[in-house]
């Protein structure tokens, strides 16, 4: 079956103002709204569009994390994913571990494409997709802003520092999504009802033969240094004078 595997992560919603805990052990997540990582939502939307064009038959959404992550999987099912895989663990998961666990899911599901967000907005690591591609020994097309499938190949336009780069990759492959790839659909109420009946399989992360042990120790979290408010000028002439005074013009 022509299948697409999409991996999503539960993260603090992007509209939440992030606060570092006073004791420096992390950021405040108690009572904070959690959502699907926005880049992963774009990944899922792209997979659904590929399926709707008749170029794939099934979209499987997967996540790694505690029981609460099933809320995000249900949202993904409501968006249109056919079934969900929950790799359950309460342990903090670093990107290399996530990639190894996803590699196991790739063995299980044999997808023609794995689509992930280019980064999660919590740790901002931007590693998991590339690591999965390496472990799988398959092509990667990161930071995608356009994806076209034809036969056993994908042509992917990537947002790079120089502008837009186009790659052709053989399938199966890993794609990571940038912001402008698409605009994810809104979930409708009937779809939420339907999603409750879609299959959601739970796998114990510890049973997949991957060490979940983190390699890095997060010693302390600090709020960033803040810039203070400067001076207000009243017109362009004062502005130019101020810049000259600073030796900037």
């Amino acid at each position: 079956m022509k299948r697409i595997l999409v991996s999503i992560k539960r993260v603090v919603d992007y509209n939440v103002r992030i606060r570092v805990k006073p004791d420096g052990t992390g950021v405040v997540t108690d009572g904070v709204k959690m959502s699907i990582n926005p880049f992963d939502e774009i990944a899922l939307e792209e997979a659904l569009r590929i399926k709707e064009k008749g170029l794939a038959e099934e979209v499987v959404v997967a996540t790694i994390g505690p029981a609460d992550c099933q809320q995000q999987l249900r949202t993904a099912l409501a968006m249109g994913a056919d079934r969900a895989l929950h790799v359950q663990t309460d342990a903090p998961i670093e990107p290399p571990v996530a990639a190894k666990l996803l590699r196991k899911l790739v063995d299980k599901e044999q997808p023609m494409l794995a689509i992930l967000g280019k980064q999660a907005i919590d740790d901002d690591a931007s590693q998991t997709g590339q690591m999965l591609a390496a472990l799988w020994g398959r092509p990667q097309a990161t930071f995608a802003s356009k994806v076209e499938l034809a036969g056993d190949k994908a042509t992917v336009t990537r947002e790079v520092d120089a502008g837009l780069e186009t790659l052709e990759v053989e399938l199966p492959a890993v794609i990571t999504t940038d912001l402008r790839l698409n605009e994810p659909r809104y979930v409708k109420l009937p779809d939420i009802m339907k999603a409750k009946k879609k299959p959601l399989e739970t796998l114990d992360a510890a049973s997949l033969g991957v060490s979940l042990q983190p390699a890095l120790q997060l010693v302390k979290f600090e709020a960033p240094a803040t810039r203070s408010r400067g001076v207000m000028v009243k017109d362009a002439r004062e502005l130019v004078d101020a810049l000259k005074k600073k030796g900037l013009l």
């Binding site: 290399p96 690591a125 931007s126 998991t128 590339q130 690591m131 591609a133 990667q140 520092d161």
Partner: peptide, 23 residues
Amino acid sequence: STTFGKDLMPRVAALLDAPQLSD
């Protein structure tokens, strides 16, 4: 930590089975 490095280094890290620090 440009698009060149962000694309390449995690692939290197995975092949080396090493952790990566981004940014």
